[in-house]
Nucleic acid binder design. Sequence first.
RNA 1: GGGGUUGUAGCUCAGUUGGUUAGAGUACCUGCCUGUCACGCAGGGUGCCGCGAGUUCGAGUCUCGUCAACCCCGCCA
Length: 591
Amino acid sequence: MFSDRSYCGELTASDSGRDVSVSGWVDRKRDLGGIIFLEIRDVSGVIQAVFDSSVSAVNAETADSVRSEYVIQVKGRVRKRSDDTINPNITTGDIEIVADSINILNRSMVPPFSIDSRDNINEEVRLKYRFLDLRRDDMKEAMIMRHKAMQVTRNFLSARRFIEIETPILNKSTPEGARDFLVPSRLNRGEFYALPQSPQLFKQILMVSGFDRYFQIVKCFRDEDLRNDRQPEFTQIDMELSFITPGMIMETIEELIKVIVKEITGKEIDYSFPVITYDEAMSKYGKDAPDTRFGLEIRECSDIFANSTFNVFSSALSTGGVVRGFAVEDGGKLSRKMTDDYSEYVKKFGAKGFPMVKFNDGKFEGGISKFITDDEKSMVIERFGLKNPAVVFFSVDKEKIVNATLAGMRLKVAGDLDMIDNDKLNFLWATDFPLLEYHEEDKRYYAVHHPFTAPLPDQAGMLDNLTPENAVKMKAQAYDIVLNGVEIGGGSIRIADPELQSKIFKTIGMSDEEAKMKFSFLLDALQYGAPPHGGLALGLDRIMMLLLKRNSIREVIAFPKTQKGQCLMSDAPSPVVDDQLSELSIRVVKK
RNA sequence: GGGGUUGUAGCUCAGUUGGUUAGAGUACCUGCCUGUCACGCAGGGUGCCGCGAGUUCGAGUCUCGUCAACCCCGCCA
């Protein structure tokens, strides 16, 4: 019955004269009385079928009875349309099917929203009726493009001797990094699996096993709060390689990325990705994943205002804070209201305010200009290279807050002034991340990336006389890949030396016993001939979101969760019956 | 845990200073229509104004609480 099915969107003028059969959904009905047009939609597109009541009253009557989203099968002959009836808006607009028969395969309730992508539908409704939402062109495109990205990735990596190997979803919980999703074990009561935050340990084991190039397109799980680019389950293109340098990995990834970009957008990336160190990224952009599509680079100003009498500056500087800022040649577009709003807006970054001065004709005016001495003014002019009318924004606080504020405000101001070119794809590598981070609260070090990351080769010795002060100087062989200010992947060279590995564990306050309990299998493996190795993982969802210019990761995921982690379609998560709980020896404590 | 935005017809949204019967477009239903293509024309039904309190003679509108979706901080590579 369906073996001779043609795809609606794939019929062309060259099929005219052919008898075809199409099956799909009623996209639109135009009933003119004696003649009825149905647009039939399937995954490939739409095509118009014509029913003439003077040819077949029965068929016309059936066509008249169908409604939106009914599933029908239409057989008929493809015909070129006459010139005056061609519809240039659809790809099959130069042809139509002259129907011989119509068969209603299934009815549909009136859909809660139009399948037409022109309408902006409330996301809540879309998520509840995701099966209908996925019929819309935008979602269909996202799913097909996502498939293509995965396909070229598999082809690319397979051609380079990577082997795709699956790793366990039911895993051992390791409470480092993100919060784990736990899965109770029925066979081992009171014990739990964890869903993998990433296949990190297993892919390293695979290197020891001799699969010198591994990859996997794999779901990862992190029980943390959601954002527009963060879902509790997400997909990584995960890779690990043996006998490798960071440069070799970066080269391979760059090539892969270019293939994906070409496949999805048709664009050639004709530059090699700039490499920027972590320190440079932080000082110029205030974050490790900078958006370089616009300027507004940050400049250090603490030295300029070292002797400032302006209380806001002097008190912050005397208590270990910093003064930094950026200048924007705004062409007078920044209104008083906007800058006023900014000083409120920065509070979400923990800043107390957002001091500014206007620069015009070589002079400062407005804002805090009266607190700035002439000497300071000339230094500011030089530091920011001021020539044209501009506004200089400052942030004054502890370094962390200053960075967050300026990073956030760069983006805000650039957005408000329409300075961001949406067609740009600015990739870059961030390297030389700090290996460790000292937390004052609990007086211990934490691994910035993860504890298996190797330090720079010549820095391993620093572990022996580490202090909270010099710890920041110790860099990791870690690298992040960034697109338009969004981290889309990251990786590192791993520690292959069991001695160095246990030294790192000790440094982050993990005893031998504790390390053994958590990672014994990795530590064991390292002692049986571990090759030097390293790898990287790319966030597929984020890459798709950016390349398809969607404003949320949910737009490229078939069945995403809401910000509270719920699936509005299936209603997960949900309570379970007591029998299930008792089988697992679990009791729910009511809060 | 915290800050913000939004919530009115199936959908998208308007609703003035608190004022009597809550509106538009679209969808839906009925009829007419033989070249439409977001077909057209005529007619019709459509509301827990998110939910709960409060203020008031009177609340879609004001106040408080609450729920949900989204954005952000914290959290998270």
